[in-house]
Design a protein around this nucleic acid. Structure first.
Length: 414
DNA sequence: TCTGGGGTCCTAGGACCC
DNA sequence: TCTGGGGTCCTAGGACCC
């Protein structure tokens, strides 16, 4: 009898092939077999027919077109992706309850408890691939090994439309000949640094003293890569992972410089972030804005509040102050991207009223603001601050806020 | 001719507290 | 009074992932 053991190849990594492009083809079969890319501005995903020409995800659409003039580009704004993703994850969950969602098209599964029901990890990998193809028409590549990071590598090697199983005892033989870029955490910069040290394969990392990598990469990064190269990765498959931050960003084609032009964007982004937080009953303490300039350099500014909030109004207040600061600091710069993020996320905060006190009515934006989270009624706030205008965050954003007497302004959001 | 919209983790310096 | 060490929090930047 098969005894499920921790050393079996029982961690699966499943990765849908060219997900966005594949869904686009399913929705519009006339695209089948043609070089096609999904994206606007940059390529999100492209068919294997397009990859033959060198087209890759992340590449500007313009560049992709120059490599492959007959490339068909569709914009990915249709909403079928989540439907397909849900159908696929339902299949995964029919094989094991231990499914860790990495993204819309990627998951880890621990099938060690499913072996007595469905067969070996290799059997399960084959069954999942068959089910996904039959029920959704999509190809999914699967890696099955004893370790998370190794399964992820195996599924990459298996692409397109493949299955690779690495059994206990075979890991290093599989791993060591591969180029370093297969490792999670090795991007262009790290690859270049490693290559400069004469390190090209994962086996080279394993044979290099940690200290000589640490001086180039930092100690944590070096230790991480060294561990992976020796097949050390104790991380379990986790079914639920709490979000640590939420963000929204917007790239701007028309380059803009002034606060007046940027504020509507800031308000819209903040409303998106805060709305998503409230929908999940979350609140956050730290607000970060990121600005990218015309020369592609970027800066971030963050503020940590004394307490968490999910209020659009409170976040707008804090973000606006930072934006004003940045514009004063870089007056000549064009802004090409603005991002608003909330981190330090907590769950189930009590009722909050975030408020700002505006003692300067001449400017369009609130100044000298305080913010707190209060468990007080609006009436109590009105008494305390003498406000005669109470506005909701959404009113603030739609521009219907009235700064009548300018005594103060209270923004609530509940 | 410069490229979207989400995320995670790490580092380093300074402030502050014990 | 001076000096030192350890720990935590905050800010800013950077690399990387899908």
């Amino acid at each position: 009898m098969d005894v499920p053991s921790a050393s079996a190849a029982s961690i699966l990594h499943a990765d849908l092939d060219a997900f966005y492009a594949a869904v686009a083809v399913k929705e519009n079969p006339s695209l089948a077999g043609k070089p096609m890319a999904v994206g606007a501005g940059v390529v999100l995903s492209c068919t294997y027919e397009a990859r033959v020409y060198g087209v890759r995800g992340g590449m500007p659409v313009r560049e992709a077109r120059s490599m492959c003039p007959q490339l068909i580009v569709v914009d990915g704004t249709f909403g079928a992706y989540t439907e397909y993703s849900k159908a696929v994850f339902t299949i995964y969950e029919s094989y094991t309850p231990v499914v860790e969602r990495l993204s819309i098209d990627e998951a880890f599964m621990d099938v060690s408890g499913s072996i007595h029901l469905f067969g070996t990890p290799a059997d399960i990998g084959r069954s999942i691939r068959d089910d996904v193809k039959r029920e959704t028409g999509l190809a999914v590549s699967v890696g099955a090994t004893p370790r998370k990071f190794l399964s992820k590598i195996a599924s990459q090697v298996a692409k397109p439309d493949g299955l690779i199983v690495v059994n206990p005892g075979e890991e290093l033989e599989f791993l060591h000949p591969l180029p370093v870029s297969y490792l999670w955490g090795v991007g262009p910069v790290t690859k270049r640094r490693l290559n400069n040290l004469g390190i090209h394969t994962i086996g080279d990392i394993a044979a290099t003293p940690r200290d000589s990598m640490a001086s180039m990469l930092g100690s944590a990064h070096a230790a991480h890569l060294y561990a992976l190269s020796h097949n050390l990765d104790p991380r379990p498959v986790e079914t639920r992972r709490k979000a640590k931050s939420l963000s929204a960003q917007s790239a701007m084609r028309a380059r803009i410089r002034t606060l007046d032009e940027l504020l509507p964007v800031l308000n819209r982004l903040t409303d998106r972030v805060a709305g998503r937080m409230r929908a999940k009953d979350l609140s956050a303490r730290t607000v970060t804005i990121k600005i990218r300039f015309g020369d592609l350099s970027s800066i971030t500014r963050s503020t940590t509040m004394p307490t968490s909030t999910g209020s659009t109004g409170a976040i707008v207040v804090v973000a606006t102050k930072m934006l004003e600061r940045v514009l004063a600091e870089f007056p000549k710069h064009e802004t090409t991207l603005l991002s608003v993020a909330a981190s330090g996320i907590a769950k189930g905060e009590p009722t909050q009223l975030a408020f700002g006190v505006d003692d300067d009515v001449s400017g369009g934006s609130p100044r000298e603001l305080e913010y707190e989270a209060l468990d007080q009624s609006v009436d109590a706030l009105r008494k305390r601050f003498g406000a005669d205008v109470i506005t909701h965050g959404s009113d603030l954003l739609s521009g219907r806020t009235k700064n009548t007497d300018g005594l103060s302004e209270i923004m609530t959001n509940d």
